[in-house]
Each structure stands twice: as structure tokens, then as C-alpha cells.
Amino acid sequence: MKRSTLRWLAGVLCVVALAGCEGAGPPRRFDNNDLELAVGNSARMACSCLWVMNRDEAYCRAWVKASPDVARFSFDANRKTVEASSFISWAATARYVDDKRGCILE
């Protein structure tokens, strides 16, 4: 097969491939890093686990463990807040709002 024919065929395949993605387009990439997500997940889910699901600390620590397992949390039972952190720079706080709306990530 001639090189020009191969180029033409490759072009057709590209068009077909793009048509297959019509509407979907290239994926959007979100501006989050794993550490930010890890501490957000840990704080938010631990808050709900402790004060909405009413599970104990040991269960909640196991339940919120995510990959990468880099977030650690502490909580204030009186204020019903959870603070999660990872290394030095990353931190997140979740707060129990009320008995209808549970927890929010601040």
C-alpha cells in the first residue's frame, strides 16, 4: 500500500473515531489534586459516619479510608466537627448542621 493511501486511511479512521465521540467530546479535567480530595473525603464522610450514621470512631476510620491513604482526621464531639489533614499543607473541615441536613464540607 502506498504511503499516501495509508495517510488517507489514517485520516478516515480519525474522522470515524471523532464521529464516535460526537457530543461527548474530550473529557473535562477538574482542578483537584489527590491530597485535597483525600482530606475532603475524610472530613466529610467521617462527619456523616459519626453523627448521621451514629457509628463509632473505629468503624468510621475504617469506613472513610481511601486511596491514597494519606488523610488523617480528628474530631470535636461537642462542636460536631471533623478536621482532616494530610502532610502540612492540606486540610479540610466538615461540620454537622442539623438532624435533617447532616454534614457539610466547609
Binding site: R28, F30, E36, R44, S67
Partner: peptide, 23 residues
């Protein structure tokens, strides 16, 4: 053009994870 995705997929491509814990 929502991108449903969970913990087993790239976090940066997930509309869900970004909504709950990210930007």
C-alpha cells in the same frame, strides 16, 4: 456532559468526586 466516576477511576476526571470533595 457529566462525567460520572468513582474511586476506581481517575479522580481528576470525575464530576462526582470533584463536586463532593474538590473544586
Amino acid at each position: 456532559g457529566w462525567q460520572e466516576g468513582y474511586e476506581d477511576e481517575p479522580y481528576q476526571l470525575s464530576s462526582v468526586i470533584s463536586m463532593f470533595f474538590g473544586e
